[in-house]
Nucleic acid binder design. Structure first.
Lengths: 221, 221
DNA sequence: TATAATATCCTTGTATACAAAATACGAAGA
DNA sequence: TCTTCGTATTTTGTATACAAGGATATTATA
């Protein structure tokens, strides 16, 4: 399976490999404990060992793989504990994000948020899980951007990705859709009214719901 | 300047290089904006380009260097805005950390914290800035560990690192020592009494003080 | 059959080679 | 003098080569 270059913009192979491996780990295609052997991966991705190794260095620092001396890398185990840890941090940072968004979003950004809400609504009516997930992501992206804090945006995106596997499961369930829609509405209202405490309580609920869903989904394994 | 192997235990060259470069950046020997040229560094450290590149990949993910496409790595410049962003996030996460520490630290960990406090006190009496910085770090490490949240520990360490350069300046100033000592005392007390709100207010003050000092230190450049 | 010694293979860690892009420099022309 | 084009140099990005340690298999021996 060679790597396909979709965009014409330049990305070093190491970054392509990094993203590919990262996705593979987060989606569960590479299972915890599985060894990442350089030559094997290199052949599979149609590149040399060099970009593979450099990608692994980044995964190492991110904690997605663990290094065994002279034996190379292995996929780090994702336990229920580690997921709870991520959610605990994420709850706090999402909390901060809506607070800052309430304080700092300008008219234009709020307009964009309304648009995103409409798009989400439309996606829900169509009932396409992937489209819904995308619209949901966009909605949150606008809030993130509205914080005006680049570091925060970076971290939240990262944390969100770590949950990717479970989030997709969660969004697939039609029962959740109406709930999600309501939550989005409430968030939108809160941001428009700059009502920080309302926004926070909604976002907490939002994450708590996800936590419950994730916990369930894990126990099924 | 060849790399000296002090311990006989095995460490890949890339990790030695990583630590070396990181120290150099954090201590300010490599200045913001300065390019990291692979061949130059390789010659200086007496290794080949490979370990250098792998070390740079880690520094990249850590945010200590930024990559310019096809031009390689440069020491990341810290703007006042980016520092404020980091501090804003850090304040929130430190807040979470002390809360969790209050809730979850066991007797043994609290003992360790008391020891660290004593060590810090001793360092202050000696008046060695580097030693003080180290003792301060240890104190906070114990609190971090006390949260029982590995992801949080990872993030806080990273955020702390990004400030290291300026933090050292801060710790060098003898006027701050007594203040730091008092803050540590208060944090220790709060954790012992599991008094979350007290702990939080101290930690906020702690970060705010740093923010002020750092802002000053940046304006001097 | 079980065990120990040895040889072979595999994988990583490091160094080097090669290609392509970016930059710097200089000469030619207006 | 300034601009522009082209060449040379530098530096990155990627691939490959080589060495050493660890794992595995095989064979000899009890």
């Amino acid at each position: 399976m060679d790597i396909l270059m979709t965009t014409e913009e330049y990305l070093p192979l190491r970054d392509v490999v990094f993203k590919t491996l990262r996705q593979a780990i987060l989606k569960g295609e590479l299972k915890p404990g599985e060894r990442l052997m350089e030559i094997t991966l290199a052949k599979k991705l149609g590149v040399s060992r060099t970009p593979i190794r450099e990608a692994i260095r980044k995964l190492e620092l991110e904690g997605l793989v663990t290094m065994i001396p002279r034996r190379g890398a292995a996929v780090a185990g994702i336990t229920e504990k580690s997921l709870r840890d991520v959610l605990e941090v994420r709850k706090t940072l999402e909390d901060l994000a809506v607070e800052l968004a309430c304080k700092r979003m300008n008219e234009e950004q709020i307009k964009a948020l309304e648009e995103a809400e409409k798009a989400f609504c439309a996606a829900v009516e169509k009932g396409e899980p992937i489209e819904i997930a995308g619209a949901d992501e966009l909605f949150h992206d606008i809030i993130f951007a509205g914080t005006g804090n680049d570091k925060l945006v970076l971290l939240l995106n990262n944390l969100r990705e770590q949950m990717y596997r479970y989030r997709l499961e969660y969004v697939k369930n039609p029962k959740q859709w109406k709930l999600l829609l309501e939550e989005h509405d409430m968030i939108l209202e809160a941001v428009k009214n700059k009502d920080i405490s309302a926004a926070k309580s909604v976002i907490r609920m939002h994450i708590d719901n996800q936590e419950i869903a994730v916990a369930k989904s894990i126990k099924l394994n």
